[in-house]
Design a protein around this nucleic acid. Structure first.
Lengths: 250, 250
DNA sequence: CTTGAACCACACGTAACGTGTTGTTTTATA
DNA sequence: TATAAAACAACACGTTACGTGTGGTTCAAG
């Protein structure tokens, strides 16, 4: 009752294309165990089993060369191979997480600026090109471990879609009005909005806000808290100084 | 003060290989804006800017063809492209999550069976080849919405590494002793261990355990709760029946 | 024995370059 | 200014896992 399949039947049964079987034969991965006198390939059930194993390993992300190696060398260390694959998968997941964040950032940036702002995009990408832990590395002079953790958590989970949009809108408004006189009403209004939003995000943790602000001020370039760049920070600083002075005067 | 770069200088400044710039020139993505009389390529600052944009888009996961299209057609819809990329990234993340689970499953399987058990591997892969929601689809006759959710949560988070290993060990033990007489002491002991572990996992929710058990019994093939297959389930069932009868007898 | 379907073998194409070769241009040094 | 060294251009082939297409051959049904 041993079944024998022609390449076409095998293809239909497994969903693998004839060309693929052709290729596997060509690279010596799955050679049919017999042939007709005319040269047509005949696959035994053993061959079918091997094909299924190949497909399983392929699904697991191994290359055909690795699969060949694994199936031929019975001495090969399975656990090692699989742990290696797991490592790769985990790294790729990390990369994709970063990438998703970056894409979201770019999307927000376009939505709120109305056009492509390349420097911002570069900054975002630069920001996400390293590990998530490394992103805050630049602030380590100003923030302690505890504060860093809080900020990471805040970025990841605590902020809702709405919060993010609000935050971006506020900063977008500031970016569009960098030319405003720091003494003007409008400028003060903008910074007030910003301060409110910042308070909302940082909650009651005034100390954290203070440390963060100090860190931001000393930033040389790049963006800090997503779309805030040096220009925005300087604008806020200028307006704040003006306000403090006028408060002192009165 | 307009700077002009030879291909080598540009390569050093941007970290892009000469061959890559060569290729970008060849496919018309970045053509140098001038050349020396001898035919050497000279890149202007505009070219450098374009290169940086290309690199940014490449990081975002676009193909060179898409990039060409995006940069050439200023009418192109950025948001659409980025949302599309986001979709791709999310799908890929889903896939990798599944893959990670499958690899973990295979790893556990090898660890506890000591060798490669291909049917188990096939089952695992089959199990994770669909959406996570679809996995439990086959039980929908026996489980209600609520119960399904509980099980999904349990699989994902509630089980620690230790729990999983315990669970696998228990089932591995049963698999290795399927030949035991259902009346024997050893068999009873094995099933007792299994029941304890199941209780631990399902907590006090006896009802859920009941529904699940019913679902498992009616399973035709494949694996249900990771490494439990029909053989294991039948073994447990047989032992349980023997035990119940002997309890009734006494 | 014919005919249509299945099959084999071969070739070229894909994406984004890496690697290597040969011949030419530029640059630095004597 | 002559020459050697470095940089460069242009081309070709290789990579992965097949898809697509072609022409000739074999198989299975009638």
């Amino acid at each position: 009752m041993r079944k024998i399949y022609t390449i076409g039947k095998l293809s239909k049964n497994t969903g693998v294309t004839v060309r693929t079987l052709d290729y596997y034969d060509e690279i010596g991965l799955i050679k049919p165990s017999s042939k007709t006198s005319g040269g047509h390939r005949l696959y035994s059930e053993d061959d079918v089993m091997k094909l299924e194993r190949v497909l399983a390993l392929k699904y697991m992300g191994f290359s055909l060369e690795q699969i060949k190696d694994i199936l031929e060398n019975s001495t090969s260390n399975w656990q090692e191979s699989i742990q290696h694959q797991l490592e790769l998968v985990k790294r790729e997941q990390e990369r994709l997480k970063m990438l998703e964040q970056a894409l979201l950032g770019v999307s927000y940036s376009i939505e709120f600026e109305g056009e492509i702002n390349w420097p911002v995009i570069f900054s975002i990408i630069q920001l996400y090109q390293h590990d998530p832990g490394d992103v805050l590395e630049q602030y380590k002079e100003y923030l302690n471990e505890d504060e860093m953790k809080k900020i990471i958590d805040m970025n990841a989970a605590n902020m809702s879609e709405e919060d993010i949009k609000e935050w971006l809108k506020v900063i977008g408004d500031i970016r569009n009005n960098l030319h405003l006189d720091p003494n003007s009403e409008e400028a003060e209004q903008l910074v007030l909005c910003w301060a409110n939003q910042a308070d909302k995000m940082f909650g009651e943790d005034e100390e954290l806000l203070g440390s963060m602000w100090e860190a931001l001020q000393n930033l040389q370039e790049g963006i800090a808290f997503y779309p805030m760049d040096k220009d925005v920070i300087n604008f806020i600083k200028r307006v704040a100084i003006v306000k403090r002075e006028s408060t002192n005067d009165s």
